[in-house]
């Protein structure tokens, strides 16, 4: 235990884990949508820091760029479009709390038990043979080239779908007028 405490890495992990847990609970319990979105920023930023701790630099910065940069802005736009009054909201919860708690606890027991059985005695190696961004790039454009291209196509489809969905709907009267003309 003493040598566990003496290592700074463990302290960093502990602090980040506490931040993630606290902010995660805040995301799902906050009555204010803006606060929930900002707590999500905290969770994602701390996760990116954990990725750095696990020496996955590239994915960490992608997480910061894509999530903290883009997705959160999208969320804030969504909040502002759908909730004109920005204040507290009373009826955000439904009545199935007991069932939700049972499901959540059972899932946690399953996940935690499995990962502990599988990885409980595995240690993370020191700086033996770190995975560099170059390795990642080689593998993305080599072994995983087809999935990489498919995923870019998924992005294109999502782009078109988003535009099609968010376009202004014509009312039936306007539609009839348009087909008459």
């Amino acid at each position: 235990m003493a040598d566990w405490i003496s290592l700074p890495v463990n302290w960093v992990f502990l602090v980040l884990a506490l931040v993630i847990a606290f902010a995660g609970v805040k995301v799902v319990t906050s009555r204010n949508l803006i606060h929930a979105a900002l707590s999500l920023v905290g969770v994602l930023a701390s996760t990116a820091a954990l990725f750095l701790l696990l020496s996955a630099e590239f994915v960490a910065w992608v997480l910061v760029l894509v999530y903290v940069g883009a997705v959160l802005v999208l969320f804030l736009f969504g909040i502002m479009i759908t909730r004109a009054p920005m204040g507290r909201e009373v009826s955000l919860d439904n009545e199935r709390r007991g069932l939700a708690a049972i499901t959540a606890l059972a899932t946690f027991a399953l996940l935690a038990g499995t990962s502990w059985v599988a990885f409980g005695d595995v240690e993370i190696e020191g700086v033996g043979d770190p995975i560099t961004t170059g390795d990642l790039a080689d593998s993305l454009l080599g072994r995983y080239l087809i999935p990489f291209e498919i995923v870019s196509f998924v992005l294109l489809a999502a782009l078109i779908g988003g535009i099609a969905l968010a376009r202004k709907d014509r009312s039936p009267a306007e539609e009839a007028e348009r087909t008459d003309a």
Partner: peptide
Amino acid sequence: VGPAWYMLLAAGLFVI
């Protein structure tokens, strides 16, 4: 901290 701790944290985040 071993990978199992990260996974425990991930399990907690998942159930949240």
